[in-house]
Design a protein around this nucleic acid. Structure first.
Length: 467
RNA sequence: GGCGCGGUAGCCAAGUGGUAAGGCCAAGGUCUGCAAAACCUUUACUCGUCGGUUCGAUUCCGACCCGCGCCUCCA
């Protein structure tokens, strides 16, 4: 079975492979750094991380570019309100974004590129578009003329043909020739920052950065372009228009879009005020970042995900179950030999996991394969049917799972006890238990719990874990 | 209005033309000094509604109802 992905362009699930060699050229839309990103934003970034990881597990190499939009109207407005330069202002939120990404264990893309570092490339591209008569200037700004790109609408599956023919208006009296035309280069208003250029002073429009940086780093045709569904129109539609007008080639073979995170049935967004940042959840609500990662990863990316604290709690418990299984696997003594039936059970579980992920990143199905396996193996451990020889297979399955979901190892927490300190307290408690001094034994257990250490008495001795 | 996504147990959620995965929660049980972990049992005669096709539909077709989103900045 091969990897299949839903392609917004064709509105179908298609088998994926890169156009050239084994290398996947992928571009994904990153954040606009005007504020802290919220977990709705991170749903998409977690999805992109899953996609990255699964592509590599599927045997492909990656060349992935993610942009950081560090100039736009909101940034300019907020920076000026705080009396900061653009750079001073965006540095704060760029750093916050990268910190959050690290907490959520998002792999770094091969290239992280900032819009303001590519102004010259953008100006050059706009000039080339102008030479092809795809642009016009108006009030010091430069616009893309959509009537020069007949395929406009092919991604969002909108038909604009009627619109464009009838709506032609006088360029001199209206800013834009057509309502659908969009700015490539924006003239500065009073007091706004700008770059000097042959186009006149100004700053780039939102869409041009992605086309220019994608083509610069990855070539004229990408294998995958990804982002949230709200970018389909107009952002990605406009990227296609610019890029294909520029190169005459298809801009991206696959377009994949993740659905929204909802809160109480509505889109999580800054403007509605119904949003949580990662910081909110970690600091105010005391969840581990892995819990957020798991929750966002566990619902398949094309399904809207209603965010609730019940959902977070449920994710936390599910992670505990997975970690407990790993702990048991790592610490328990098993009888010699190998149980062939369980070996083939492991093979089946691995295949089911692969099949689920290959099926348009169906994480729910992949997870089900893992949990079913864990239940069966726990049961086999209880009945002593699980043997030493079955350990490597089980470890392999867990590591396959964790190479995608990456939630098994807890984030290191500061100010806790050293392993040796824990071990010596456990020894003390074991001695107390032997002496049937259960009061002291329980006291030590409580004391450890206060320091984030959980003890479990098993037949083969005490095992412990960090909360 | 156009385009798109979705409606499956208390919650999250997979899925197939042949009679409903998985996770969480809840109840009971096994184990245990207690606790934890783990396991077992119970929990949708039913998959938004109404028709149609079929031996048989949650799964195909049609109509309708409801929720969310995009069409302006937005993951």
């Amino acid at each position: 079975m091969a990897l299949r992905l839903y392609n917004t362009l064709s509105q179908q699930v298609e088998e994926f492979s890169p156009a050239h060699d084994n290398l996947v050229r992928m571009y994904t839309c990153g954040p606009t750094v005007y504020d802290f990103a919220h977990i709705g934003n991170f749903r998409t970034f977690v999805f992109i991380d899953l996609l990255r990881r699964w592509l590599r597990i599927s045997g492909f190499q990656l060349d992935h570019v993610m942009n950081i939009t560090d100039v736009d109207d909101k940034i300019i407005r907020n920076a000026s309100a705080q009396g900061k330069s653009l750079d001073e202002y965006t540095e704060i939120y760029t750093k916050a974004f990268l910190d959050d990404c690290a907490k959520l264990r998002l792999e770094a893309p091969e290239h992280r590129v900032a819009a303001t570092k590519h102004i010259n490339d953008m100006v050059a591209a706009i000039e080339r578009l102008g030479a092809g008569e795809h642009t016009y200037a108006s009030d010091g700004s430069v616009y893309f003329r959509i009537s020069t790109f007949p395929q406009y609408g092919k991604l969002s599956h909108n038909d604009f043909s009627g619109n464009i023919a009838g709506a032609r208006v006088d360029v001199d009296t209206y800013e834009k020739a057509d309502a659908r035309d969009f700015a490539l280069w924006k003239a500065p208003k009073e007091g706004e920052p700008f770059w000097e250029s042959p186009l006149g002073p100004g700053r780039p429009g939102w869409h041009i950065e992605c086309s220019v940086m994608a083509i610069k780093y990855l070539g004229e045709t990408l294998d995958i372009h990804a982002g949230g569904v709200d970018l389909i129109f107009p952002h990605h539609e406009n990227e296609i228009a610019q890029s294909e007008a520029l190169t005459g080639r298809p801009f991206s073979r696959f377009w994949v879009h993740s659905e929204f995170l909802l809160v109480e049935g509505q889109k999580m967004s800054k403007s509605l005020g119904n949003y949580f940042t990662l910081r909110d959840i970690l600091e105010k609500h005391h969840y581990q970042p892995e819990v957020v990662r798991y929750l966002l990863a566990s619902v398949p990316y094309r399904k809207q995900l209603n965010f609730t604290f019940d959902g977070l709690k449920s994710a936390a418990t599910a992670i505990d179950r997975l970690r407990n299984f790993k702990l048991r696997l790592d610490t328990e003594q098993f009888p010699e030999g190998v149980n062939e039936q369980l070996s083939s059970r492991t093979t089946r579980a691995c295949r089911a996991f692969h099949d689920g992920m290959h099926d348009d990143l169906n994480t729910a199905e992949a997870l089900a394969a893992v949990f079913e396996y864990i239940r069966d193996v726990n049961s086999a451990m209880d009945s002593k049917e699980f043997r030493v020889g079955n350990v490597p297979g089980a470890v392999e399955l867990l590591s396959l799972f964790d190479s995608v979901f990456d939630v098994l190892s807890p984030a290191p927490s500061s100010g806790t006890l050293l392993d040796s300190e824990v071990e010596s307290l456990i020894a003390e408690r074991t001695a107390a238990k032997k002496a049937r001094n259960f009061q002291l034994a329980d006291q030590i257990r409580e004391q450890l719990l206060d320091r984030g250490i959980i003890l479990e008495d098993t037949k083969s001795g005490v095992r412990w874990k960090r909360k």
